[in-house]
Design a protein around this nucleic acid. Sequence first.
DNA 1: TTGCATTTTCGCAACATTGCGAATAGACTG
DNA 2: CAGTCTATTCGCAATGTTGCGAAAATGCAA
Lengths: 106, 106
Amino acid sequence: MAKTLKPASDAVEILHRRFYEGKPARLKNLEEARANEEIARKIHELRAAASLSQTQLAKLIGTTASVICRLENADYEGHSLAMLRRIAGALNQRVEIRFIPIRRSA
Amino acid sequence: MAKTLKPASDAVEILHRRFYEGKPARLKNLEEARANEEIARKIHELRAAASLSQTQLAKLIGTTASVICRLENADYEGHSLAMLRRIAGALNQRVEIRFIPIRRSA
DNA sequence: TTGCATTTTCGCAACATTGCGAATAGACTG
DNA sequence: CAGTCTATTCGCAATGTTGCGAAAATGCAA
């Protein structure tokens, strides 16, 4: 029975190939780049809305201006939940995370 | 002029103290703990909904089952955007991040 | 122009997360 | 019971993110 029920693993690998074939690395990278860009912009907007300089926000969360600058750079790809929460907390916000189904365009 | 407009830095530090005094470390940790717990649960739910074992999901995102197990552990505090995106991508979802204002209870 | 606050870039050490194998335990089937 | 799949835990190396100072660039006002 094991053999007839087993191919799950192979099926997973097929799915894996289909997923990455259907969504080329280039496209995936573009999506991520946009997402990071958006996060950078949101941080900048939050800070601006609070009328704080990078140095001021940095002090609020216990770091330096250069770190804030890095986070607000659209090319930065290292955003972490931990940092987003620190910033959100200092600006009286909370970070909400949601998984949203992607409609595969036919 | 500089001197009369300068105290911004001190004001920031006062805000800093007020923020952390009004929201004790214990409470802050509780909130984070809940948030992490929720993420762990969401990952588990997504995986279950896709009828995948930890090993299968691990293969989809190019890692091992022990890593998935770690992520689904409610006590895990190291969730990263990068990993959430990998999982979301493999399960045909995207990660949405929002900053939401906290109403300070009077 | 000078002066000052702010922003940006760079480098590297310190810390945090991930990768991964191996071992253990639980559930289920035959 | 053995056999299989699944889930969990541990340790350590590899990778990634943060901390932080210093210097240079920008913007604005006097």
